[in-house]
Amino acid sequence: MSEFLSQGGYGFFVWGAYGMVAVLLVAEVLQLRAQRRTIWSRLGRLTRMRDTGGTE
């Protein structure tokens, strides 16, 4: 296992490259999910405000 992690002594370079790919791609997906949730909740708020005629 540790032999696999060290990658013949080039672990820093291999995992540095793969790590950044993983971080950015996962971050993009999380950001997209968060964005979607925000949009839905904003739409919901807007409709509620319209339904109640803004009298709240």
């Binding site: 999910r33 839905w40 919901g44 409709t47």
Partner: peptide, 27 residues
């Protein structure tokens, strides 16, 4: 990723349309 972002863009831009409102009610 593109389709996820595309859906968000569509929702934001079409927020005033009836089909989005129907979708919202269903949700």
């Amino acid at each position: 990723a593109t389709f996820m972002r595309l859906r968000s863009i569509i929702l934001t831009r079409e927020a005033e349309n009836t089909w989005v409102q129907e979708l919202l009610n269903a949700r």
